[in-house]
Design a protein around this nucleic acid. Structure first.
Lengths: 166, 166
DNA sequence: CTATAACTTGGAGTCGACTCCAAGTCAAGG
DNA sequence: CCTTGACTTGGAGTCGACTCCAAGTTATAG
């Protein structure tokens, strides 16, 4: 198998679903390392780079801002995370974040399902999210109505509420 | 139980975790209906409004842009979704979106777990996302390694790749 | 030899979602 | 009566993440 295949930026864009402009932008802001150039100055990408870009795209979906992704990319390519306790902590903490996000998303799915079902059976209870969400669900096998969070909507930044009090 | 309790914008902000400014902003862009005012012009909020704001906050976490939330808020308060087939479609489609997002997030969790485990056991295989993600996972009961998407990372906007070709 | 396509660069522009500001109103306390 | 605090308004500013542009280079095809 050809392991050392290379790609143009166009191919890379196509493969990753990230536009050429954006890939260049990521390089500009040093999220991606400066790509090697051919003699004519064109960027070359390898499988590894594509993986990195995919990871970025994936992390983006978890709502992580670009400027926090660096450590994850480092860990992606070679580093052994166990050697950087801080990094491990970072990973764990973001993992928790994501797990909460999943719960949050599951809630929305439940909410939608509820609304959809409600329509189907024409129940007129003015139920809202927040309380008895899914009780009558049987359309699909759902292990649990994600109860751990209990519709508290994962308010993972409890800032707010009068910061302008100098 | 006092059902008709009202709240100031400050209290509302505190309860929802959304800043006063942002709540006003939502009203400004008509995402929220114009709140009732007291005689002195101050906004008053009720339980229902708080639920709506919570729903916005929740939908935001699913990555939905503000200007697409309107139908969901409508459905939240009173409307029977079944009467608006378009809306039902919207709901369904967004549901699919979210399900994909969950898969995507689960992948990142898997990735992190993998990295964490890898560190733990000091395996030196240069595994990456994309292939055998979790095979050696047994730390927690995971039904499936979210395989349906097969690490394709949910590229829910397949635009890209040379649009500027006039 | 020239047109086309695929790239390069630096920099400007856009867009969504806030966030902050200044000037003003109103109610209660000292 | 004056200050303080909680609010109001319209509008300006910020920030992250692109996205677009113009000008230039190089390679290939006709």
């Amino acid at each position: 198998m050809k392991e050392n295949q290379t790609f143009t930026i166009k191919q890379t864009a196509k493969q990753t679903g990230i536009s050429q402009d954006t890939i260049r932008y990521y390089e500009k802001i040093a999220l991606l390392p400066r790509a090697d150039r051919k003699d004519n100055g064109h960027r070359v990408y390898r499988q590894e780079d594509i993986k990195t870009i995919r990871l970025i795209s994936c992390l983006k979906k978890t709502g992580m801002p670009l400027d926090e992704m660096q450590p994850f990319l480092a860990v992606s390519s070679d580093t052994d995370p166990a050697e950087y306790p801080e990094l491990v902590e970072h990973l764990r903490s973001h993992r928790e974040n994501i797990v909460s996000q999943i719960a949050s998303l599951q809630q929305v799915v439940d909410f939608i399902d509820m609304k959809l079902e409600e329509g189907k059976y024409r129940r007129d209870c003015s139920d809202e999210i927040q309380e008895g969400v899914s009780e009558k669900m049987m359309g699909k096998p759902k292990p649990k109505p994600v109860s751990p969070v209990e519709m508290s909507f994962f308010s993972h930044r409890p800032e707010q509420a009068s910061r302008r009090t100098p």
